[in-house]
Design a protein around this nucleic acid. Structure first.
Length: 826
RNA sequence: GCGGGCGUGGCGGAAUGGCAGACGCGGCAGACUCAAAAUCUGUUGACCAUAAAUCGUGCGGGUUCAAGUCCCGCCGCCCGCACCA
């Protein structure tokens, strides 16, 4: 029966009926956990990106199965999230209803892809069975001090009256109403990922991840070595005191402690709490105006580098600990509250931003570093080399040495020390949204914040909720949800009305798959020990800084809770590229350049589509879709089927007894070369070249077939190997050929992956190029094992050499074994 | 602005410093056919009537017996971060 979508259905049914892909943890073979990033269940059918990710990773895992690994390959759904909620606001269809319906559709489609997923291990994050453990994990983090509440500036859309997730802010605008997003201070839950900043950095080098992704994480974490130095503050003519009655230390982070003697003012971020504390009554009005001004400034404005500096004086002064100088404290939005201490010491002579600010507001500029003693470099002089000037006792000290000298001096006064600062911020996980995991915390007037006892988990997400956004969490309006008893004192209390960021759901799901039905624990430690970490993780590069960082953090936190005993969740990571529309642009409905897999699959079958995806692109690059490529694969599959029919009647594939002549050796060489390189290429996710090698193999077989004295056993033998090699890409078609055309035993996927014979790859004679000064002049056949002397002798004896030399004489003879010979001639 | 990646025929794309363009699409020519489609065979970087020669991996330099590959400087595109103190 020629290959079609009917063949797909036939074998999909048989595979399911016979449980071919059921995972047995006790089966022989080294365990291999192969995981694709699970997907969001959208209403539409699987798109090209899903196919590209899932079908080819499936091909990889199929080869691994055949190589004898005990492959665990689960699939599930990242089912909480905003799209379903927004869809509900628009249509009135409840997120739960639309989500479960979408999951059903996607499951069906994923089955039709013909992947090896074991659906017994499926999970969906929106089920209470899953999010119960999300809540449990939250409480463990809380108990460990890794989940805490604080007041922080968040993205706020004033038109939608709601907080927005970072990913909902597109170029500083709300994705839904397109109005500008501003910062607003709100009390939110955070996960203390910053506790792990250094370890997240330290473990990166040993991961088998794309270097680019590691770089993105490195930058995101943003380690910066510097010093923390402190000033005292004079407000209204008096030294400002802290809550203990000690003089308040205004601490700043700097990488340039060498310029400390050049500080002429200090800047505090307007959002910082310190700002209010430092502002004098006299200046309060202008500072408040300025705060309002910056809170209104959109991210777009603030991000602009051409934007002119703004700011106002707070009325207070910082007192320089080394020279006693009194410098004004300003507030300006060029200082970011969340980075460092939210306060900057300004050295306009040696910092461009400070220079611009000081120039605009007429603040002092004092040179303290010169490229060499006495030099009058143009200011600002920002080079990190030179010696100190105008710095009293530090004059003449080389800039790097001066950092140590100054910090040491400050340290003796308790006013400074070396430190490391990270750009990474704690992970804000509260969301004022409905369709997510309720935060399992209770607010009691008497007892404060109290975690929900484990026996009361899960805190169920109520179904009947008014979720139109109006600035309040939808759950806050649901009395039956909100009102509860305090677990500690039994008095009336309120639940936390927020839900968790859906990145929390996906930050540990890889741990739940192997034990997805466990009602008593998040997972069984022994099961996890057997299967994790994930050996191969495949998904888009867009998750480099978010999901992949969060998942690493949660893994480390789990380890420190004693749940697991390894450091990293994903040993090896691959990113698939992006398939663009035929016009070379990103596919989008508005552009009208989308390609729907369904049409192709219905017409040609899953295998043709899968094999095209393998062949038509460099996997990690992606690229524009091209319909013509499908035709190439159709042709190839027809040739494969034709070959299979040709050899169907040949029952003998024993090649050990046939005489291996030149042609046989040649075909055998191609066969073994194909096995070797296709295996290697599939292993490293370079599917296009592995399919190319198979095309070469069928070319060679067809050529050999046409010989009058072709040995049928060899043809059959080579054809069987080809079918095995192709099976990961075209599972249905090759199963059909294997069982029906060849009459072999079910299933091809219980067969061993072909191995190659190294001796077949050793040729007696090879052709090499002879170059003169790097240019190919002619070619010679030489014995493959010839050494340089032998090759040199043979080439020198060649009659073509004299003409090629054209009167020049040989200076040097280089033979690169098996490659070429190069003659240096003058 | 900083950091990273990429740039190869008409197209998708191959090339551990070692014969650039594997494999395929498309084109051209031929076979089969009344014809077309399909299939098969050959051919296909540019220049050139042909061969030879020459030129060819964004541009300009360099290292090397040998550079798409390594180094330096540009240009273009993409991605990440972005007043990070």
């Amino acid at each position: 029966m020629p290959y079609s979508v009917d063949i797909d259905r036939k074998w999909q049914k048989k595979w399911a009926d016979t449980g071919l892909y059921k995972f047995d943890p006790n089966k022989e073979g080294e365990k291999l956990y192969c995981l694709e990033m699970f997907s969001y269940p959208s209403g539409a059918n699987l798109h090209l990106g899903h196919w590209y990710n899932y079908s080819l990773t499936d091909s990889w895992s199929r080869m691994k199965r055949m190589q004898g690994y005990n492959v665990f390959h689960p699939m599930g759904f990242d089912a909480f999230g905003l799209p379903a909620e927004n869809y509900a606001i628009k249509t009135g269809i409840h997120p739960q209803d639309s989500t479960f319906k979408n999951i059903e559709t996607m499951e069906k489609q994923l089955r039709e892809m013909g992947a090896t997923f074991d659906w017994d291990y499926e999970l969906a994050t929106c089920t209470p069975e899953y999010y119960k453990w999300n809540q449990w994990l939250f409480i463990q983090l809380y108990n460990k001090g890794l989940a805490y509440r604080k007041n922080a500036p968040v993205n706020w859309c004033d038109k939608c009256k709601t907080v927005l997730a970072n990913e909902q802010v597109i170029d500083g605008k709300c994705e839904r109403c397109d109005s500008e997003v501003v910062k607003k201070n709100m009390t939110q839950w955070f996960f203390k990922i910053t506790d792990y900043a250094q370890e997240l950095l330290d473990c990166l080098p040993d991961l088998d991840w794309p270097e680019k992704t590691k770089k993105i994480q490195t930058n995101w974490i943003g380690r910066s070595e510097g010093s923390q130095v402190a000033f005292t503050v004079e407000k209204d003519g008096e030294i400002l005191k802290d809550e203990n009655g000690e003089p308040l230390k205004l601490e700043v982070f700097t990488t340039r402690a060498d310029t400390f003697m050049g500080v002429t003012y200090v800047v505090v971020a307007p959002e910082s709490e310190l700002c209010s504390k430092l502002t004098t009554d006299e200046c309060k009005a202008q500072v408040d105006d300025y705060k309002l001004f910056t809170s209104k400034a959109s991210d777009i404005d603030r991000m602009s580098t051409t934007r002119e500096k703004t700011g106002v004086f707070t009325g207070s002064y910082a007192i320089h600990p080394l020279n006693g100088r009194k410098v004004p404290i300003w507030t300006s939005d060029y200082v970011i509250a969340a980075y460092g201490t939210g306060v900057v010491m300004a050295v306009p002579a040696h910092d461009e931003r400070d220079f611009e600010f000081a120039t605009k507001f007429g603040l002092d500029i004092i040179r303290v570093v010169a490229s060499k003693e006495g030099a009058e470099d143009e200011l600002p002089y920002c080079e990190k080399k030179g010696v100190l000037v105008n710095s009293d006792e530090f004059n003449g000290i080389e800039m790097h040495a001066a950092i140590d000298a100054i910090v040491n001096k400050l340290a003796t006064m308790g006013m400074g020390h070396k430190t490391v600062n990270y750009r990474l911020r704690d992970w804000l996980i509260s969301r004022q949204r409905y369709w997510g995991t309720p935060i399992p915390m209770i607010h009691c007037e008497k007892c404060g914040v109290v975690p929900v006892p484990e026996k009361d988990l899960p805190v169920l997400l109520p179904y009947d909720v008014e979720f139109t956004p109006d600035g309040e969490s939808p759950l806050a309006k649901c009395d039956s949800f909100m009102n509860c008893k305090c677990p500690k004192c039994g008095g009336d209390a309120k639940r936390d009305p927020d839900t968790m960021d859906t990145f929390v759901d996906s930050s540990w799901y890889e741990f739940r798959y192997p034990d997805n039905k466990n009602n008593d624990a998040i997972f069984d430690k022994e099961k996890i020990k057997k299967l994790l970490p994930v050996d191969k993780y495949v998904g888009g590069p867009e998750h480099a800084a978010m999901h992949l960082l969060y998942a690493r953090f949660i893994c480390k936190a789990m380890r420190d809770m004693g749940l697991i005993d390894f450091d990293e969740p994903f040993k090896s990571l691959v990113h698939q590229g992006i398939i663009l529309g035929p016009d070379g642009n990103r596919m989008s409905k508005s552009r009208g350049n989308t390609v729907a897999p369904d049409e192709y699959v219905a017409k040609h079958g899953s295998d043709v589509f899968r094999t095209y995806l393998a062949f038509g692109f460099a996997y990690t690059e992606g690229g524009p879709w091209n319909d013509d490529g499908i035709q190439a694969i159709l042709k190839f599959t027809r040739r494969v089927e034709k070959l299979a029919e040709d050899v169907a009647s040949i029952k003998d594939s024993d090649i050990s007894k046939i005489e291996m002549g030149k042609d046989e050796k040649e075909l055998n060489y191609v066969l073994n070369y194909t096995i070797k390189s296709a295996t290697f290429d599939i292993d490293r996710f370079q599917f296009n070249t592995s399919v190319a090698r198979m095309m070469e193999l069928i070319n060679a077989i067809n050529k050999y077939q046409q010989l009058a004295n072709a040995k049928p056993q060899l043809v059959r033998y080579a054809a069987e190997k080809l079918i095995l090699l192709l099976s990961p890409f075209a599972p249905h078609m090759t199963e059909e050929i294997w069982c029906e055309t060849f009459g072999n035993e079910y299933s091809i996927f219980n067969q061993k992956w072909p191995s190659f014979d190294e001796s077949a790859l050793v040729k007696d004679e090879i052709e090499i190029a002879v170059q003169i000064n790097g240019k190919v002049m002619f070619k010679v056949d030489i014995p493959a094992d010839a050494d340089q002397a032998a090759v040199e002798a043979q080439v020198k004896a060649d009659e073509r050499l004299e003409k090629a030399l054209a009167g020049r004489s040989i200076v040097k003879f280089i033979y690169v074994k098996g490659r070429l010979a190069n003659i240096v001639a003058k």
